[in-house]
Simulated assay, not measured.
Amino acid sequence: MNDFAWALAGFVLIHVGISATGLRARLVAAIGEWPYRGLFSLASLALLAWLVVGYQTMRDDPFDPLNEMLWLPPDWLRWPGYALSFLGVALAVTGVLSPGPTYAGFESRSLAQPEPARGVLRVTRHPFLWGAAVWGAGHLLINGERFAIMLFGGLALMAIFGARSIDRKGRARDADAWDRFADVTSNAPFAAIAQGRNKLALGEIGWRGLVGVAVSLAIMLTHGQLLRALAN
């Protein structure tokens, strides 16, 4: 395994093997919530930096086996892949800007409201994570290299498992409030709306959605330059 593979494995491991399991609760009990969050964030940033450096080294070596093609995506998959990648980034950015289950104190502030789910939370209670998963799925339709399957597939699966983990932790903190929230929302995007448990309210998404679309459009227009900058 090269640095890219080790860094990716470590990044996925701490998010799935620690944050999404009972090990997180034991660490929080031992050192406290905020020290845990600080150390977890530092570890994530360090692994992310290692991942970027490893990616650069791996892509510069044409003989690295991770650059080999596992499959050759047909041309007709490109536009669906672009569309999913665009929607994924827009949803993820909108989710970052919207108070949700990953925000500290969400249960005490938002779940007590008459309508606990508003804005993009009507679409999914985990917009950032599902945005990352959709973004990863879009790239899997376009990229067939070994490293791409590992990177985009791993991040997409990590996001989906992360959403389920947040559901479990939210219910453990306050089962009644969380169940009330879950009754009008869904993990999978648009499921609650399709089932009649909620409605789509684009006006509530407002400026957050516009920023998400703008950021996604900017990334698509500068994608080539960003990749070249990463490679240098």
Rank of each mutant, 00 (worst) to 15 (best):
D3V: 15
F4R: 07
F4E: 01
A7D: 02
L8W: 04
G10E: 04
G10N: 04
V12Y: 12
L13Y: 12
V16Q: 06
I18M: 07
S19G: 13
A20T: 11
T21L: 06
G22S: 09
R26D: 15
R26C: 10
V28N: 04
A29F: 07
G32F: 06
Y36T: 01
L42C: 12
L42K: 02
A43P: 09
A43N: 05
A49W: 05
V52L: 12
V52G: 08
V52S: 11
T57L: 11
P65M: 06
L66I: 05
L66C: 01
E68I: 03
L70K: 06
L72R: 13
L72C: 12
P73Q: 00
P80A: 01
P80T: 03
Y82R: 10
A83H: 04
L84K: 00
S85V: 10
L87W: 08
G88V: 06
G88T: 08
V89Q: 02
V96M: 12
S98I: 02
P101N: 07
E107V: 15
E107S: 15
E107R: 11
P114R: 00
E115C: 10
P116F: 08
R122S: 08
V123T: 10
T124H: 06
H126R: 04
P127C: 10
F128K: 09
G131M: 02
A133C: 08
G136W: 00
N143H: 13
G144L: 06
E145N: 11
A148H: 01
G153P: 00
A156Y: 02
G162T: 02
S165R: 00
S165D: 01
I166G: 06
R168K: 10
R171I: 04
R173W: 11
W178S: 06
D179Q: 07
D179I: 03
S186V: 05
N187R: 09
N187A: 12
G196I: 04
R197I: 07
K199M: 13
I205T: 07
G206L: 09
V211L: 09
A214D: 06
V215P: 10
S216V: 05
L217T: 14
A218E: 05
M220T: 09
T222Q: 11
G224I: 12
Q225M: 14
R228N: 11
N232W: 12
